[in-house]
Simulated scan of single mutants.
Amino acid sequence: MSTKPARAAPLSVEDRQEMLIDVVTPLLIEYGQALTTKQIAMRAGIAEGTIFRAFGTKDELIQAAVDRQLDPDPFRKRLRSIDATLPLEAKVSAIVALMRDRFTTVFTIMTALGRFGPPAAHDPRHEFTDVLGEAVEADLERLNFGAERTGQIIRMVALSASMQQIRGGLRFTDDEVTHIILYGIIGRLPDPALT
């Protein structure tokens, strides 16, 4: 005689909401506005009604996923976690990788949903510039610009290299973007023995 496996403990509403946001984010990138609650439920391995018990409407779930992507605090925390003692090249490479991942994800979701322009709570000063400036401050003697200006340059180049509309079909690796930031288009890479 076989026995039924024990049911998993039910998730709290907050845990269920977090799980659904995790599930819906890649689906938004794939399906955009055409995303259905059936697709969400299938990917999450739950009944469709569970979505509505957690969020009320599909739009509320989508907005929660967008809000999570736009929340700058986790991203700032990841930027601040870059080891300030790394060589400049390694720091800039780590910054570029994080920024391009964030920009690509945010712009892909917003475009898929047909949303354009900055979010309502957009900070035009870009506090990220300060965080980036702090990351390169130990290397000021090697920089052609001050820390804040360098942070702005890193942000601008990483942003434009992440946007299909600006790249015009060209693709850049994180290493290429890092080299453009550090050495420009006519500079030479330093001797590897010196880095």
Results as ranks from 00 to 15, higher is better:
Gly49Ile: 10
Asp174Pro: 02
Glu137Gly: 01
Arg188Tyr: 13
Pro87Tyr: 05
Ala147Gln: 06
Thr37Val: 07
Asp101Ile: 01
Gln39Asp: 03
Arg188Gly: 05
Met42Ile: 09
Ser81Val: 04
Leu159Cys: 03
Gly151Glu: 04
Leu98Tyr: 08
Ser81Pro: 06
Met1Thr: 12
Arg68Ser: 07
Pro190Thr: 10
Ser160Tyr: 11
Ala112Phe: 02
Gly117Asn: 11
Thr173Glu: 15
Ala54Gly: 10
Leu61His: 03
Ile46Arg: 02
Glu48Leu: 03
Val96Phe: 13
Ala94Thr: 09
Ile40Ser: 04
Asp73Ala: 14
Ala47Tyr: 09
Val96Asn: 08
Ala90Gly: 03
Gln69Lys: 00
Ala121Asn: 14
Met99Tyr: 05
Val23His: 01
Pro87Gln: 15
Ala9Gln: 05
Thr108Val: 00
Phe172Trp: 11
Leu98Asn: 08
Ile180Arg: 02
Ala54Arg: 06
Gly184Lys: 09
Ile153Trp: 01
Ser81Ala: 15
Val131Thr: 11
Asp59His: 11
Asp73Glu: 14
Gln164Cys: 01
Glu134Asp: 15
Val136Met: 06
Asp67Thr: 12
Leu132Met: 14
Gly184Val: 04
Tyr31Pro: 00
Arg125Cys: 14
Ile185Gly: 15
Leu170Ser: 14
Phe107His: 13
Lys38Pro: 00
Val106Thr: 15
Gly49Pro: 05
Ile21Asn: 01
Ser2Pro: 13
Gly146Ile: 04
Leu61Gly: 06
Arg167Asp: 07
Val13Phe: 13
Ala121Trp: 08
Met156Cys: 03
Glu176Arg: 08
Phe172Arg: 05
Ser93Leu: 10
Pro118Glu: 15
Gly151Ala: 09
Ala135Val: 02
Leu182Cys: 13
Tyr31Gln: 11
Leu79Gly: 02
Leu79Phe: 07
Ser2Gly: 12
Val66Ala: 03
Ile109Leu: 11
Ala8Lys: 13
Ile51Gly: 03
Glu127Ser: 11
Ala84Cys: 07
Glu134Val: 03
Arg171Glu: 12
Phe172Val: 05
Tyr183Leu: 03
Lys91Ala: 04
Ala120Thr: 09
Gln152Phe: 11
Ala161Lys: 05
Glu134Gly: 07
Val131Ala: 11
Asp15Arg: 12
Lys91Trp: 01
Ala121Met: 06
Val177His: 05
Glu134Met: 06
Glu48Pro: 05
Gln33Asn: 08
Thr37Phe: 08
Val136Gln: 02
Tyr31Gly: 01
Ala9Asp: 11
Ala34Ile: 00
Ala138Pro: 00
Thr37Met: 12
Gly45Tyr: 09
Leu132Arg: 02
Asp191Gly: 10
Glu127His: 10
Phe55Asp: 02
Val136Trp: 04
Leu88Phe: 12
Lys38His: 09
Asp83Ala: 10
Leu79Cys: 12
Val66Ile: 07
Leu61Val: 04
Gly187Met: 14
Gln69Glu: 13
Glu30Arg: 07
Leu27Ala: 02
Ala34Trp: 00
Arg171Tyr: 14
Ser2Met: 06
Ala9Thr: 07
Ser93Cys: 04
Thr3Val: 15
Leu113His: 04
Ser162Gln: 07
Lys38Gln: 11
Ile109Gln: 02
Gly32Ile: 03
Ala41Leu: 07
His122Ile: 12
Arg68Gln: 14
Phe128Gly: 12
Ile21Ala: 01
Pro5Phe: 10
Asp73Arg: 14
Tyr183Cys: 01
Thr50Ala: 13
Gln63Thr: 13
Ala161Thr: 12
Thr105Glu: 15
